[in-house]
Amino acid sequence: MRTIFQETLLGPVDLSSLAIDFPADVPRDAWPDFVKEGRDLGDPRYKEEPLKVSDLIDFKVFNDDFRVELDGVVAIEVNPIAESFRVTEGGSVISEFPLSVQMGSASPAESEKLISTLFVPPEFGVTFVGTSHGFDPAGKTSGFILWMGKRGVIVDPPPYTGDVLMRMGIAPRLIDSIILSHCHADHDAGSFQKILRSSNVRLITTPTILGSFLRKYAAISGFSEEFISNLFRFVPVKIGAPIRVHGGDITFQYSLHTIPCISFQAEYAGKTIAFSGDTCYNPELLAEMEANGTIGASRREQLMNFNFGPTSFCMRPACRRSTHRFHCLRSSTRARGRGCM
């Protein structure tokens, strides 16, 4: 459980292998210092001492009677007969909920009805499968399909993307790759689900983010990291070096976020689609971070100049938090449904 929260909230503990994410000619001052950057973006109370999981969560363990006391008054116990958790206060039951829940899915009738209108992918473009954020209980988290050469690369797929694709008439076989931007739950949960439901899918991300993903989902699922890694083909990202995908090029950078997170620009047939990833674009803050030694001059320049070239289409994830602020000088969108260029 600690591993899950560590990777989700704070990122990797060991960053000694960060060099593998970069080509040899990238200057060291262009590398992110994730610990320092996370500190400057996080709670001011933890500026001096790094934030730890134990600062956020007090773990309580059930005793042999499957009961745990929270504060001497409130307790949680397992009711084996009703197969539920029971919350008591002063000996009185104040709440009870099942040990497990069944998640919903699209009904076959709904899927069959809508799949009759098959989607024809564009040569180069995007289709949104989610346009909300992780704090919205009713919406789908941000995720989209990047079409290149009429083949799909899905970026941070929301949970149950397979059902969404069926309702949109998009054949899953058209999507053969996943880009995983980072390991916050509103971005990686659907990736794990897609990996489990697909065969021979490619996972595109940096080795650092992949390591975090494997540790997290090994802890969640009980599968070994080796077992999970055998479910997909890993395509390692080298920051700043383009990757050839379906006749186009995708170039990645590390964005400014509380855990390792990538942005990218995709180029195809003379057009460009840019994705900021979760980031904080704030020139004043970047200048301050360079002045106090959190980032180097090359890192600041890269963060300042993301996507300020001749970009055809620019996107950023939907979020309400200040650490995700981004302003695209060319164009921006939160469009819904199908999109193409």
Rank of each mutant, 00 (worst) to 15 (best):
Q102N: 10
G152M: 06
P137M: 11
H133M: 07
K140H: 10
G125R: 07
V101I: 13
S100I: 07
P108L: 04
F128N: 02
G143M: 08
M166L: 13
P122S: 13
V164L: 03
T141I: 02
L118I: 15
I170P: 02
M148A: 01
P157K: 11
L114C: 08
M168N: 10
T131D: 15
L99W: 06
I115Q: 13
E110S: 13
G152H: 02
M148C: 03
A109L: 12
T127N: 07
A138I: 11
Q102T: 11
G149W: 06
P108I: 02
I145N: 02
A109Y: 13
F124R: 07
I154T: 00
R167A: 07
E110A: 14
F128T: 09
V164P: 00
G125L: 06
P159R: 05
P122C: 13
P98K: 11
D156N: 15
A109N: 15
A171P: 12
P108C: 04
G139Y: 05
E110Q: 15
A138W: 13
D163A: 01
G162M: 07
L165Q: 00
V155R: 01
G104T: 01
L114Y: 10
D156K: 08
E110D: 14
M168S: 06
A171H: 10
I170C: 09
Q102P: 02
I170T: 11
M166K: 15
L118K: 15
M148H: 04
V129S: 00
G149Y: 05
V164Y: 02
G149S: 06
I145C: 03
E110F: 05
V155D: 03
F119R: 10
A106G: 10
G162C: 10
V164M: 09
A109G: 11
R167G: 04
S100H: 10
G169N: 12
S105G: 06
G152I: 04
L146G: 03
F144V: 00
P122R: 13
S100C: 07
K150C: 06
A106P: 01
D156A: 13
F119H: 14
F124I: 03
R167H: 07
V129Q: 00
D156G: 06
T131G: 09
A138C: 08
E123L: 13
G134I: 01
L118T: 15
S107M: 05
K113P: 01
L146E: 07
L146V: 05
P98D: 12
S132M: 08
P159E: 03
S142G: 05
E110H: 08
S142F: 15
F144D: 01
P157W: 05
R167K: 14
V129M: 01
M168K: 14
